[in-house]
Design a protein around this nucleic acid. Sequence first.
RNA 1: CGGGAUGUAGGGUAACGGUCACCCACCAGUUUUGGGAACUGGUCCAAGCAGGUUCAACUCCUGUCAUCCCGACCA
Length: 466
Amino acid sequence: MDVDFAQWYTDVVKKAELVDYSGVKGCMVIRPYGYAIWENIQKDLDARFKKLGHENVYMPMFIPESLLQKEKDHVEGFAPECAIVTIGGQNQLSERLIVRPTSETLFCEHYRNIIHSYRDLPKLYNQWCNVVRWEKTTRPFLRTSEFLWQEGHTMHETEEEARQETLQMLQVYADFYRDTLAIPAITGRKTEKEKFAGAEETYTIEPMMHNGVALQGGTSHYFGTGFTKAFDITFTDRDNQVRYPHQTSWGVSTRSIGAIIMTHGDDSGLILPPRVAPIQVVIIPAAQHKEGVLERAGALRDELAQRFRVKLDDSENSAGWKFSQYEMKGVPVRLEIGPRDIANNSCVLVSRVTREKKVVSLDQVTEEVQAMLDQVHAELLARAEKNLREKTFEARTYEEFLDIAANHPGFIKAMWCGDTACEDKLKDVTGGVKSRCIPFHEEHLSDVCVCCGKPAKHMVVWGRQY
RNA sequence: CGGGAUGUAGGGUAACGGUCACCCACCAGUUUUGGGAACUGGUCCAAGCAGGUUCAACUCCUGUCAUCCCGACCA
């Protein structure tokens, strides 16, 4: 698996029936098993958003070109990867329409119409939708021309409140990754070079994949009043002064499914974190032709279905075939039940992570399944934390940095002067190591920049990325 | 976007300038079933697309599209 991680990845997304390719470059068919993971992710995140007062809306998928061009940095950032509609029906359009790569501009146009007074604030909107970015190199879930995501867009009366929202939503993402996906991550602030086009600050969550490569797992941006001024969104404040609201946006995409695959998978295939697994428990009957086995297994399925997502596989395939099949698909807990077990009023639970078998009483089966699901989550998280820990290195000198970059896949902590030139140079000489973020909890490794030797301003986490 | 490779059935492969073959899957049956079952019989289904060369193209040539690998790019 370490030998050819890229090939392993493409094999597993196909074999586990998560996706199929389509006739358009970089666009993937998300199959039922893959889409069910996304639905579980949506359900979890959506509940977290709503608990904090956010409301869902839907914006159009087309952006008039003139609208996208209102904010200068924003258009420069996105123009190279836009898909554009020029014909409607039979007629050339008088204005080209951009297929949304992100919806800041659309939200701004709408907010301009509905925000007039401080009483209209805050506006806490979110939408679940697709976006299109014409990518050059694509890979299922990790980088696709069209992908699904949620984008939250909020407007606030004060800078302080907006900044608080930005950080709060990043924390929501970090909690979600840890508590729902069993993925630990480094969180922090992007450097000037890596910021979102048009943002004042970009915060990011950076989980590390099994092979030591980073994946930007979610971002949260503080825009200040850059867009609100460009779009002329104003409100009358409590003191009867006209002001520009302060804005944020934040998003997580189907890329998170790629993170799950690459963080937890092993040589047998996927391992899905129990809280988003479409099938949490698969029941595999042994000697299923024998009297009473399928009936008992069916009753067990009905019982467990009250608490879990359960599948009973009573197909004619051999038990061994089924074992391999559900391991490939990453089902966290397997339940085996046959005549011997039924005679003992028991069944066998098997963990996908450790393959440990546990004989449990049928009277306790719900509690035991719950315990094993929790255990799988804890083990996945612990394993990923260990990987993150063991593949995070510290570099105090330039030579040390180059040595780690060349020989040890993973994150590198190193001091930085704050100059973009040093980021560019390090990326050049290492062939792709970039700053991931300035973590919230910086350490003091030395006084000087690892690249140029000038006084250091920050500790940066560096790494290669997908 | 540059370099390299691939494209034949639902999946995986083979051969061939002249009827495209096999394995798996699928269907029926029998024996099986606690780590990817065996035998027998059977059905369906294929050359990415567009041109060109040729009596004849899956095969040779050109273009194009898609996919994979490596690099560049990636708000």
